[in-house]
Structures are given as C-alpha cells and as structure tokens.
Amino acid sequence: MGAAGRLPVMRPRFDAGDRVSVLELGKPGHVRTPFYVRRREGVVLHRCGSYLNPEELSVGKVCGPVVPLYRVGFAMTDLWDDYRGSPADMLCLELYDHWLAPAAAAPLDGEPARDDEAFEHGGRP
C-alpha cells in the first residue's frame, strides 16, 4: 500500500437511478461479473462504496486503484427470454465501475472509457 498509505481512488461515474449497460470485457481469469448480466441493461440502485478490484486481488495486487461498486437491478424478463414470473421480478447484484457504461452508449465489447480525470489520489473514502 506504500508508506504514505496512498491509494488511487476512482471517482464514481454513476448514481442511483442511472441506466447502465454491462460490458463484455472478455477478461480471462478471476472476475466477479456473472456472464448472465453481460451486455444487459439495468438500473443503478445505489452506490456501495469503493473496493480493491477483485481481478487484481486475485493475482496478489493490492495497490489499487479502489473501484466504485454499485448495486444494479435488472428486470428478470430482460435477462431471460423464457422467464416465468411477474414482469416486476428483478435480479439485483453488484458491479464494479469498469464493467459499466451509460446505457445505449455501447459498444459493449470495448474497453471502458478511462478518463484520467476519473482518478484522484488519496485514501480510501
């Protein structure tokens, strides 16, 4: 973590109510974005704080940046063509910032926008 204890911190790009698309980053290795939500659209329910990226933790990297995490809700009928249940049924899970794009601002298989200004330096919020 460095003697100064400074970790790069990504500023959250989304907030509750935002419609987002889940990217297909095609990353091999350990990721926490289930296949079934990739390339789907959902709504940010709320921010969950910021955490070290599990993709980096899985290979022993602990120097950050810490990444905003959001709880995102999806209509079941948007996830599963053959869904049997109410159209109001939802699935909720957590997604890290770099897996998300503003809805309808695809390409869903590209690299996420990485605006340097989205980073600031400092401790974990």
Partner: peptide, 12 residues
Amino acid sequence: MSLDELRRGFES
C-alpha cells in the same frame, strides 16, 4: 492469501 486468490485457484 486473499479470498479472491483462493477463488482464482479453483476457477483455474
């Protein structure tokens, strides 16, 4: 060993 490292172990 983080939990994510452990998971990488059985996922690979």
